[in-house]
Amino acid sequence: MSVVDQSTTTAHVVGRVDDVPLGEGRAFVAGGVQVAVFRLRDGSLHATQAACPHAGGPLADGQTDADVLVCPLHLFAYRWRDGASTSGAAPVRLFAVHEEDGQLVVDV
């Protein structure tokens, strides 16, 4: 069950923190990989693969809370903690993401 298991990652600046409104997600490209970056209402940042493992739904259009991300197409939920689906789908891949001087930095 792979989560943040890359042995070597590269940091990519994908945009500005303000590009992602509070509570929402936006899609970016980080080093050729499509990622969805979320900024929760508690200020925390999360990043996942952009396409849903279930049937390719656009995860950046999903809804979130402190525990899960819900895909907009069939409402499968994925846990931030480990990327596991609480609905029986394959897990979603998570990426490390942090802020540096107002920039969004994703490790891919």
Binding site: P21, R26, A27, F28, Q34, A36, A51, P58, A60
Partner: peptide, 13 residues
């Protein structure tokens, strides 16, 4: 209503 409201969610497809 918010920045990027109509930005695509799957850029490379």
């Amino acid at each position: 209503a918010t920045p990027g409201q109509f930005r695509t969610a799957l850029p490379l497809v």
